[in-house]
C-alpha cells in the first residue's frame, strides 16, 4: 500500500530582505464585504507582508480574521497566526458638534480616521499598543 504523502502549503521563511510593508488605503477594501476583506488581508499576510490599513475592521470582521488564521495554523507550514493592533483617530477634546459630525461621517464613509496594523506572527514577534502608538518588534530568524 502506498502511503499518501500529505501536501502542505508552505509560506516563505521570513528574512530581513523579505520584509515588506504594504500600505492599504481604505478605498482598497471599502467595496468588499467581510469575506472579501479578510481574503485580501490574509492573502498579503501569507506573503509575509505587514499591512498598514487606513481605517479599521468591524469587530465581527476582526473576530473572523482571528478565526480564519486559527484555521490555517497547522495547515500552512510556518504560519503561526497574526499580530494586530488598531489606533483610533479619536480626539478626547473634540466638541460635541465635531463628535456628531465624525459619527455621521463614520456611518456614511466608514471609519477612515483610524489605522490598523496587521502582520504575520512569524515576522512580527510582538506588537505593543497604548492609546497613542503601536510598536512592532520584528522576529529575528
Amino acid at each position: 500500500m502506498v502511503k499518501k504523502k500529505s501536501v502542505k502549503r508552505r509560506i516563505k521563511k521570513p528574512s530581513k530582505k523579505d520584509l515588506t510593508i504594504h500600505f492599504m488605503p481604505y478605498s482598497a477594501i471599502s467595496h468588499e464585504d467581510a469575506i472579501g476583506r479578510i481574503k485580501k488581508i490574509m492573502g498579503l499576510i501569507l506573503k509575509n507582508k505587514i499591512i498598514i490599513l487606513q481605517g479599521k475592521l468591524k469587530p465581527d470582521e476582526e473576530v473572523r480574521l482571528i478565526e480564519n488564521s486559527m484555521t490555517l495554523i497547522g495547515n500552512i507550514q510556518g504560519f503561526q497566526g497574526i499580530e494586530i493592533a488598531g489606533l483610533n483617530g479619536e480626539n478626547e477634546n473634540r466638541s460635541l458638534f465635531e463628535g456628531v459630525r465624525r459619527n455621521i461621517a463614520k456611518i456614511l464613509i466608514g471609519e477612515q480616521d483610524a489605522i490598523t496594523v496587521i502582520g504575520p506572527a512569524s515576522v512580527v514577534k510582538e506588537m505593543t499598543k497604548d492609546p497613542k502608538k503601536v510598536e512592532l518588534m520584528l522576529a529575528r530568524k
Partner: peptide
C-alpha cells in the same frame, strides 16, 4: 498592558 487587540476585539463583539 491591557491595550491588547484581543481584549478590544472581544469587547467590541
Amino acid at each position: 498592558n491591557p491595550y491588547s487587540q484581543v481584549n478590544i476585539t472581544i469587547l467590541g463583539n
